[in-house]
Write a protein that binds this DNA or RNA. Sequence first.
DNA 1: CTATTATTGTCACAAAATGAGACAATAATA
DNA 2: TATTATTGTCTCATTTTGTGACAATAATAG
Lengths: 278, 278
Amino acid sequence: MSHFVTIIEELLLITKNPARYSDFFLLIAGKLFEMKNQQPIEVITHDGEGLLPGLAIDAVIFGFQQNQLKILLLEHSNTGLFALPGGFIRNQENLNDAARRVLAQRTGLQNIYLEQFYVFGDCSRHNAETLRKIMIGKGNIPTENHWLLRRFVSVGYYALIDFEKVVPVSDFLFDNCNWYDLENLPDLILDHRDMVDKALETLRANLDSKLIGFNLLPETFTMADLQSLYETILGEKLRRTSFQRKILSLEILERLDKKWTGEAHKAPYLYKFIKDQL
Amino acid sequence: MSHFVTIIEELLLITKNPARYSDFFLLIAGKLFEMKNQQPIEVITHDGEGLLPGLAIDAVIFGFQQNQLKILLLEHSNTGLFALPGGFIRNQENLNDAARRVLAQRTGLQNIYLEQFYVFGDCSRHNAETLRKIMIGKGNIPTENHWLLRRFVSVGYYALIDFEKVVPVSDFLFDNCNWYDLENLPDLILDHRDMVDKALETLRANLDSKLIGFNLLPETFTMADLQSLYETILGEKLRRTSFQRKILSLEILERLDKKWTGEAHKAPYLYKFIKDQL
DNA sequence: CTATTATTGTCACAAAATGAGACAATAATA
DNA sequence: TATTATTGTCTCATTTTGTGACAATAATAG
């Protein structure tokens, strides 16, 4: 029901302001998409109304599969341009909540490990032409002075996610959202490549002190899985026995049953992260 | 000369817009203050023109003296309200440059260790009443919808400074800028106390990994000075011999002549930080 | 059923880092 | 010259980490 109430409210507004016709169209399409997918989406209106001006959020969302770090990228429709998933902050919304909302929109997940890592605020990151291409790709011809073409300061967040649980959510304007190998990323718009690099740097620096690696693994995992994850993030080989001894000495893992893989060797124990111990 | 050019430009603008009379007065007063103190100051005009909207910078500026950490606080005139020194970002200015500018305005120093530590973006930090008091204290009666009374997201920076070199700069509206013991801070406005706590937490976490402590000491210092600094920041006693061995093994200090204090004991060596080694 | 293969859990010892104290070497003062 | 406080360095014990060895599997091949 609430969908229709919003639409009717919007309709009343539009009768007073013909410039918002295209917004209305987007709104209808978006609501239909929501109803079909039971997934809230965000419609960006032509004037940025209801959002904090000049401030954005970009998220580096890490996943781990087959000994490779991956991140979620958005391919903007009809442009071939790749970008980090991002969004804007609502007038009455906490900054960190906005980041969680963006994350939930793309991954469908909540209660995810998410942290600020840097604010990107150089003038040089401003590039109206790129934004114009993206908007045109979605069927909008932006006005000369459109709010999306102006300078933005962007707060960078990184998230750590269990790859298995995520089905990347593409949105109703047919932007594609998918995993890409960190080692083999396409060119990214603006300064998004710097964002990825800085996020990885922060992840590395925090890996030991904050014990956050577990967020990238499934509920249960073997010691070899965990070591492989650490090696991939840190970019160096670790010694098996030292690693095992160090991790176990932290007393943050609960040992479960053995894992029977069917392979021709001793079966490893499965472990589970004990959150209470933090 | 350029002062007068700016004033004349301003005068021309004002003839078209009487609402800016008070700005003009501020501008004149500010320019006179600048000429007297040879210190650039920032005049905040009534409409926030030329600044990024909704975004601010706040700086936790650390100093160290007599085995105490101190920070610079601003006492807003005629209010008794204490706040972190802060400022806004100009339309054509990099975020980090704006932070350096704020720092230079308060300390007169450049090339200072300065780093982002967190973005404060909760709605709850918005408190129009506090800002109104501050503005009234400066002789401005803000309009209901004044830009300074709206919600701000603030980027927190912390700076490490050689206490000896700083003469805090109070500004021409008679805000007082002074050092305060971290252990004995007055109540701060908004969420500025959270900012201080988070800055200290970040400083502690980065102390060993980034070797930044030296920025709080004079050019030359004894090993006891350095140990005392570390103990104060970390809030715990360290062992003299272990500390000395650890620091020297980093090979980032150059040993100079001894320091003759006139006290009745062996004179300690002076050391100097070798920046190249980083 | 036994030998083989790959991997795991654990132990043992070496090497390095750190904790803790001892002690001689000052630089003033009494 | 003896005394006092502090410093630079050394030694030894303790803890942590590096390194390899080895028995214990869990399949597979014969």
